[in-house]
Simulated scan of single mutants.
Amino acid sequence: MTGGTIALIVVAAVVVIVLLWAVAQYNGFVRLRNLVQESWRQIDVELHRRHDLIPNLVETVKGYAAHERNVFDEVTRARAAAAGPVDSPAQQAVQENALSSALGRLFAVAENYPVLRASENFQQLQAELANTEDRIAAGRRFYNANVRTLNTKVETFPANVIANMFKFTRAEYFEADDPQVRQAPSVGF
């Protein structure tokens, strides 16, 4: 073998290694992007479940506290906004924060009615909502962990070269910005 042939083999080997690395990075980005999308869909399912529980809860409280109309209207408006179409997880978080705040006011009204709090239907709805809130929180943690992994890979060298070439971008976290709404609404009496 001549020196030129060896150099050609080395160059070819380096090119093959770089191509294999690029393919592996690309596939990793696709896998992470799909994982982020899947984990968002899991949150979406739980948010829809929450949105479906709220009308029943409002109707139950209405039966005992009919004169609290403004609270019921606020919860209804917040639920409609949260269940409506959104463009991003950040926008969904804002809508869900408003809904959590309205639910907190609804539960504050319910505290004034001992007969309502003793109602089996109200207690069951409360338990379902608390369970759903826990599932949303778990889904949010899972989603945000996947977003963190994707964002780290998009930003770190040398993977960011592949990310820029194929237009992989950072994903948005699903989080509350207002410290008062970082907690799920209190549903225990």
Rank of each mutant, 00 (worst) to 15 (best):
G28H: 08
R49F: 00
H48G: 06
T60N: 14
R79E: 10
E68V: 08
R50W: 09
G63V: 03
A12Q: 04
R117D: 02
A118E: 06
G104E: 00
R77C: 00
S119H: 03
P114D: 02
A98Q: 01
L32C: 02
N112W: 05
I9R: 02
L19T: 09
T60I: 06
A81P: 14
E38D: 12
E38L: 09
V71S: 11
V109R: 03
S119V: 10
A13Y: 01
Q37L: 11
I43Y: 00
R69P: 13
S101M: 07
L116P: 13
V86M: 04
E59Y: 05
S100E: 01
V58M: 10
G84P: 14
Q42P: 00
Q37V: 13
R41Q: 14
D44K: 10
R105I: 07
L103G: 04
A13M: 12
D73V: 06
D52R: 02
A24F: 14
D73S: 15
L32I: 08
D73Q: 14
V10K: 02
Q37Y: 04
A13N: 01
V86L: 05
L53W: 09
V14K: 05
W40E: 10
Q91A: 15
F107W: 06
D52C: 03
V10L: 08
H51S: 10
I17G: 10
G28D: 07
A98C: 01
A83T: 10
I17S: 11
A65P: 12
Q95G: 03
L19Q: 07
E68R: 09
L47Y: 02
T76Q: 07
L99Q: 03
Q92Y: 09
F29Y: 14
N56Q: 09
S119E: 13
S101C: 03
R41I: 11
Q25D: 15
E46K: 06
G84I: 10
L32S: 12
V94W: 01
S39P: 07
V15T: 09
V36M: 02
V75R: 05
N97Y: 05
A65E: 06
I43P: 01
V58H: 11
E46H: 09
V11P: 15
A66W: 04
